[in-house]
């Protein structure tokens, strides 16, 4: 989907886009151009939907200064994959639930999509999804991070997420005792 392959090609892509207007061109913070289906972008991102509706889409590449090219490539890839996938029956039926949060389990392809990402790429994608108001992509990436937290000790969590332990031994012991009753597996 990257179209930064030389001026001639980019120019041609732009003309095609202008002609039938079914794609939008997005520009990452480091100046790379990506093309994405307008329908998918508007459906999956409240921010892009607002920009499309408000006419603030630049045919030469709409600047997204907060998003790097790797994250933007993943965003565009997700939109295009989403545009091609038909919601499965499982997804529809799981929406009937008694949970307070209307979270729908990620579909198989969405799981694979986030599973292949590196640690940094995953967090960059969370940031991009949050910035672009992409609720579903945010759900899917958050779900992945929550899975990474399950069943791990505090030490393991600190290691996985590179977090510094700022507790003293005494403070930790105090919290452990406070929570003694909660120390069993679900």
């Amino acid at each position: 989907m990257e179209v930064d392959k030389g001026k001639g090609e980019a120019e041609e892509t732009r003309k095609v886009a202008e002609a039938d207007r079914d794609t939008v061109t997005l520009k990452s913070s480091d100046g790379k151009l990506f093309e994405v289906s307008k329908e998918a972008a508007a459906r999956l991102s409240t921010v892009l939907a607002g920009m499309i509706a408000g006419g603030s889409i630049d045919d030469n590449g709409t600047d997204l200064k907060q998003i790097g090219s790797e994250a933007l490539e993943n965003v565009v890839d997700y939109c295009n994959k989403h545009a091609n996938s038909i919601p499965s029956a499982a997804l529809i039926s799981s929406s009937i639930s008694f949970n307070t949060a209307p979270f729908k389990e990620p579909e198989e392809w969405e799981r694979k999509f986030v599973d292949r990402l590196s640690h940094d790429a995953l967090f960059d994608l969370v940031e991009a999804a949050n910035f672009l108001g992409m609720e579903r992509l945010l759900d899917v990436t958050c779900h992945k991070i929550s899975e990474m937290m399950k069943g791990k000790s505090p030490d393991q969590i600190r290691e996985v997420f590179n977090i510094k332990n700022d507790y003293t031994k005494e403070e930790l012991e105090e919290i452990r005792q406070e929570l003694a009753w909660a120390f069993y597996d679900d």
Partner: peptide, 26 residues
């Protein structure tokens, strides 16, 4: 490296006991 609101959504996907254990992280 995520905004607090996003972190809260992640926490809400976890069972309560797991969430309480995470208080020990930092």
């Amino acid at each position: 490296p995520v905004p607090t609101d996003v972190f809260v959504s992640i926490l809400m996907l976890l069972p309560t006991s797991c969430r309480r254990r995470l208080r020990l992280v930092c």
